[in-house]
Amino acid sequence: MTPTGKRILLTATAILAAGGLATYLGTTLALHHTITLNTYGNEVGGAFRLMDATTGTMTDQTFHGRWMLVLFGATHCTQDACEPALRAMSDALDKLDPSKRKAVIIFVSLDPDRDDAERLHQYAATLGPRIVAGTAAPQALADLAKEYHAPVEKVSDPEWSYTMRMSPSFVVMNPDTRYKGMISANQSAEAMQKQLATLMNTAD
C-alpha cells in the first residue's frame, strides 16, 4: 500500500472510531441523565418525555389539547393488575369520548429492560387504540414517577423473576396539562366513568 493509501486508511479508521465513541458516549449519557422536568405548577404531574412503542419520542406536548390519563406499571405487572385497569379505563372513555379525540391513556412502563418498543407496541395493540405505551431510562423513570406520585416497586415473581407493581391510581391531566385529580385503578369501568365525568366537567 502506498503512503497516501495508508494515510487515507488511517484517517478513515480514526473517523469511524471517533463516531463510535460519540455514539457510545451519547448512549451512556442518555441512560444516566434525564431532562429537567417541569411541573407547570402542578401538585401532581407535569412534563414528561418517553420512548414510545415505535421507538420515537413522545412528550406531554404531543397530547396537548387532550385529556391524559397516566398510569405506571409494566407489561410484567404484579398480580396482572395493569391490563384490567387499562381495559376498564378504556371502556369508561368509550362512554365519555366515543370519538376517541378528547382523551388518551398514557401507560408508562417502569421496566425498560424488558419493555422495549416492540413489546410495548404489541401490549398496547391488544388493549385498544386509546392506549399509548412508553418508557425511558431508569433514572428518568424514577424522576417521572416521583413527579406523578407513583411508587416504583419491584416484586419477586416465581415465573417472571420479578414484576413491577402498578401505581394505585390514574393521574388525570386536563388538555392544558393541569392536574385535575386521581382515579383509583382498582375499580370498575362504571365507577371510573362517573369519577372521570365529574373531573372532566369541573371548571378550571
Rank of each mutant, 00 (worst) to 15 (best):
R66H: 15
F72D: 01
M51A: 14
H64C: 09
M51N: 10
T54V: 10
F63Q: 06
F48S: 06
M58I: 11
C77V: 13
T54S: 14
Q61M: 08
L31S: 12
H33L: 11
M68W: 06
T59P: 13
A47N: 05
M58W: 01
I35M: 14
T39S: 10
G65P: 13
I35H: 07
T62A: 04
C77W: 09
D80T: 04
L37K: 03
G45K: 03
R49M: 11
L69E: 04
A53R: 05
R66I: 01
F72Q: 02
L31I: 10
T78F: 01
A30V: 05
R87D: 09
H76T: 10
A74K: 04
L50H: 07
L71M: 09
H64M: 09
L69G: 03
T55Y: 15
I35N: 13
L50Y: 09
R66K: 14
T59N: 07
E43Q: 05
A74C: 09
V44I: 13
A81E: 04
T39V: 06
T39N: 13
A81H: 11
A30W: 02
M51W: 11
R66T: 03
D52V: 03
Q79W: 01
L50N: 04
T59S: 12
A53M: 10
A30H: 07
D52G: 08
